[in-house]
Design a protein around this nucleic acid. Structure first.
Lengths: 160, 160
DNA sequence: TCAAAATCGTTCAAGTTTAAAATATTTCTT
DNA sequence: AAGAAATATTTTAAACTTGAACGATTTTGA
């Protein structure tokens, strides 16, 4: 793992940070995903239900921005969720280009029973750090994430 | 973003940590990937070249463990890199099941010219945090990553 | 008002990833 | 030494994601 002192101290620090970020995320993601599979959902499907469950109905493109996937992908995810009867698409009356997406009754039910247990699992995973460490890590990641977002020339539209 | 005080304090702390980890990784990954595209490589292709360049020749399955993808995927990535003349597969003489993978002369050349510039870009991205913050974050991520890895029932073989 | 431009969602084709099955080789057991 | 089990890699089929192209609708601006 030691990226032999080859690119200067600052670069090694940065490279090492990047590797650890990728590893921590990868493992956390795999473990979280394993939990989600138990509910018969894929990770992106779960992310959509979570967004709708916590934030309420929203448009297709809002979902894409929320869970960081492209529009074409959102369509597929919604197709599958709709097929399972978990979400409903409602074409807006005011602007008929827009599709509002919401949890169905069944979707709400699944979300409620599922998310609480999932939250427990996430809590369990995070508990490998003390609460103070979690606070520190959270703050540093927030700073990193926000600062990097500023460098990201991508979908940064806030208006609507 | 505020996951309304719904699942208890500890759970909210953990959920928030998870969200921030995913966001920071996602943005970092996208920016890093954008840099890599400039060399005509995909992110996993780059990861393979990096592993081979820094650690020397290794087997197909070592590569998979290193860059955290499945064996089948490594095969495809290597096929494409081999097609571009960047890596070479050498079937081991002692154990003919094993394929050792190494950079070709052209691959070495690309790696040298590419990785230094990429390291600079990563350093630039990481510099949104102070060096001390990077050290702290690195340490916390390392602890998190290693502890989670212990919970991960997956490819944890260390023997060979 | 009416045509051009912009926006929203879907469709499509191509590339990536995974898990499982298949192949080849080696090691273990008896 | 022979067959069973294990190991390393590739192949295959299915799923996911993306970016570009497309159709429908709304907004803009002459």
């Amino acid at each position: 793992m030691k990226t032999t002192e080859q690119y200067g101290e600052k670069a090694n620090l940065a490279l090492s940070l990047w590797v650890k970020l990728a590893r921590a995320f990868g493992t956390f993601s795999r473990l979280s995903g394993r939990d989600i599979e138990r509910y018969g959902l894929t990770q992106p499907q779960f992310a959509v239900l979570e967004a709708l469950g916590h934030l309420g109905p929203m448009t297709t493109s809002d979902i894409g921005r929320k869970i960081l996937v492209t529009g074409g992908c959102v369509t597929v995810i919604l197709d599958n969720l709709e097929k399972d009867g978990l979400v409903e698409r409602v074409r807006s009356a005011e602007d008929r280009r827009i599709v509002m997406v919401q949890l169905s009754a069944q979707g709400k039910k699944l979300f409620d029973s599922m998310f609480r247990r999932h939250a427990e699992r996430i809590t369990e995973l995070a508990s490998v750090l003390t609460e103070e460490e979690q606070v520190q890590l959270s703050a540093l990641l927030k700073k990193l994430g926000l600062a990097l977002k500023g460098l990201d020339p991508l979908p940064a539209r806030n208006h609507h």
